[in-house]
Design a protein around this nucleic acid. Structure first.
Length: 278
DNA sequence: CGCCAGGTGCGAA
DNA sequence: TTCGCACCTGGC
């Protein structure tokens, strides 16, 4: 067991806001998460986190990175308030909300699955894939399956993916895995690109459009300047500012929030869904 | 039953 | 370049 002091994390908001899929909420209000090579259980204890795992190696650094604990959000929030003082209430209410650093391959597959799909079905398909191709882990007497890497899935067929309930996205996933395995694409190289180049690189893959690419960049590559525009953001922008066109939403947000556009959109969305009227 | 979801690719204009 | 439509699946 590990205690991380003064994490300044709002655990439940960060986990349940829709950035990640493969987690469960336990009776004691802790969260069990399947994180790359291990299963972790995290419980918030005031400003501390209590972490358990089947694998204690480098656990603290792993968790700190995953939950983005070493980024100075106070500084970022100050910058956001300088850009737009009207954000005061939202920024205050989102204190402790972080953008997670998720494993790259899993995130890309997850968001390819997310198009025209619902969260429970995305989770189910991901679990099916992990069950079939991933490594079994026992943690506190329960079975979990790690998400496989592209090598683990090299023998998979489109038909198998369809059977795992990926739907019409089966061919996109199949194609993507093959491109990773034959080195047509290199998902690690995206880390070294600027956000525009990274976006272009991702968009070359079938099944990855602007929304999906934005989610991947924000949640797996820490690009806080990139913002996914989904139906909810569109609704928010229409209701709040009467802006409907995607290009206008992009320009408006970029002009206003600059290098933190993506984070601010998450704050707004999160506030709108969870905090307002509560 | 018919409708549609935290989009995208595709063919038609 | 832009526009409209189909799309696995499952829950309502």
């Amino acid at each position: 067991m590990l205690r991380i002091k003064d994490a300044n994390l709002n655990l439940s908001d960060t986990i349940t806001c829709g950035q990640i899929f493969r987690f469960s909420i336990e009776d004691d209000n802790s969260y069990t998460i399947i994180l790359s090579d291990r299963v972790i259980n995290i419980k918030q204890d005031n400003n501390d986190l209590i972490v358990k795992s089947n694998n204690e190696d480098n656990l603290e650094s792993k968790v700190r990175y995953y939950l983005d604990l070493d980024r100075d959000y106070n500084k970022i929030n100050k910058r956001i308030l300088k850009l737009d003082p009207n954000m005061k209430k939202i920024v205050d209410d989102c204190n402790g909300f972080k953008i997670i650093n998720q494993p790259k391959f899993e995130t890309i597959i997850s968001y390819i699955l997310s198009q025209n799909n619902r969260v429970p079905q995305i989770k189910k398909a991901l679990d099916n894939i992990a069950y079939k191709y991933g490594k079994k882990i026992i943690f506190e007497d329960k079975e979990y399956y790690l998400f496989p890497n592209s090598e683990d899935m090299k023998e998979c067929s489109i038909e198998e993916l369809r059977n795992l309930k990926t739907g019409f996205r089966d061919k996109y996933i199949y194609e993507f895995i093959n491109k990773v395995n034959n080195k047509t694409i290199d998902i690690n190289s995206i880390s070294d690109m600027n956000s525009d180049d990274a976006m272009t690189y991702l968009l070359e893959n079938k099944g990855i459009g602007e929304k999906v690419a934005s989610c991947i960049l924000l949640f797996a590559y820490s690009r806080l300047d990139v913002f996914p525009i989904d139906t909810w953001v569109k609704k928010y922008m229409k209701d709040e500012y009467n802006i409907t066109n995607i290009k206008d939403i992009k320009r408006f947000t970029k002009d206003k929030y600059k290098e933190y556009s993506g984070l601010v959109i998450q704050y707004m969305f999160h506030y709108k869904r969870n905090k307002e009227n509560k």
